[in-house]
């Protein structure tokens, strides 16, 4: 089972929920934790894994042999990202814009373009207690997180309960992180901004055809209806509320997940897992 944790809005508590679930389930299930927020990975702060394994992640980058090039401009035409520009007697490659599709090299009539690997970040793997942990860190200045997310997800071990911590938003790296999951937990907060981005995240899970449920973090009973009404009107299960509590925030500030700091929460997160299983199985049965 793969459970992805996403949010739309940033800072709503994805890692709190993902790490809480992992810690709480680790007593009864073999857990693999994949932190796919490669631009700002933070789950290691709470799970404190020993990251013994490090592996560079490469993307292909076109290298032009100008002695073979006749400046026909075919590469520039096929490049959807404007990452290669041909002038009268010069070809410029913009590596930060290149998505590594290989089109320029494939279509070059002079065979003047080769592809070389360029390191865009590092994947790190290790263990936290009996939990497998993988994350990756994008190098500063790099614009493309997706190849790193793919590298992390390549480590996926289907024998484990896999928990994927996605990045905020609903763009390519989030889609890549959430894709293929059996269930997606959407963590939100009871604010108009939280609602707005939750609606976008719901659309994303619908496009990916992944069953989803909502967790309200910083739940403050006065304003929760903003999210509750949305969930009701869209038929989305509201699975958990985490109260706006000084105790939870205090543990967080010290790098301690709420499930580690407040043992009663482990039972609540185990119940969350049970609910997730019920919903994903129901959806799977309905699909059949």
């Amino acid at each position: 089972m793969i459970i992805a944790v996403a949010s739309g809005k940033g800072g709503t508590g994805k890692t709190t929920v993902a790490a809480g679930l992992a810690i709480s389930m680790s007593a009864e299930r073999k857990i693999q934790f994949l932190d796919c927020d490669v631009e700002e990975p933070d789950a290691h702060l709470f799970l404190r894994p020993s990251l013994l394994e490090k592996e560079p992640v490469f993307v292909p980058e076109p290298v032009v042999d100008q002695s073979l090039c006749d400046y026909c401009g075919r590469c520039m035409e096929v490049c959807a990202y404007n990452a290669i520009a041909v002038f009268e007697r010069n070809v410029l490659v913009f590596p930060q814009l290149c998505h590594g599709c290989g089109g320029c090299s494939y279509f070059c009539p002079c065979r003047a373009i080769a592809e070389k690997g360029r390191i865009i970040g590092v994947l790190e793997a290790g263990r936290s207690g009996n939990m497998d942990f993988v994350h990756a860190v994008l190098n500063i200045g790099e614009a493309q997180p997706v190849p790193l997310v793919k590298a992390v997800k390549k480590r996926l071990n289907p024998e484990c309960l896999v928990i994927v911590d996605a990045s905020p938003g609903t763009s390519c790296p989030v889609v890549e992180a959430v894709r293929g999951s059996g269930f997606c937990l959407l963590v939100t907060e009871p604010t108009p901004f939280g609602l707005h981005d939750l609606a976008m995240a719901v659309e994303m899970t619908e496009a990916l055809k992944i069953p989803r449920g909502v967790v309200i973090n910083r739940s403050d009973l006065k304003y929760d209806d903003i999210i509750e009404n949305f969930c009701l009107s869209r038929g989305i299960p509201l699975l958990l509320k985490i109260p706006f509590s000084r105790e939870v925030a205090g543990f967080y500030a010290r790098g301690v997940n709420m499930a580690e700091g407040i043992p009663e929460w482990r039972e609540t997160f185990r119940e969350l897992y049970q609910k997730v299983m019920v919903f994903s199985e129901t959806v799977a049965r309905y699909k059949r």
Binding site: Y81, A83, A85, F94
Partner: peptide, 12 residues
Amino acid sequence: DAAGGAGIKAAQ
């Protein structure tokens, strides 16, 4: 309206 690399396309 380029998705990316607008400046390069314009310069070209």
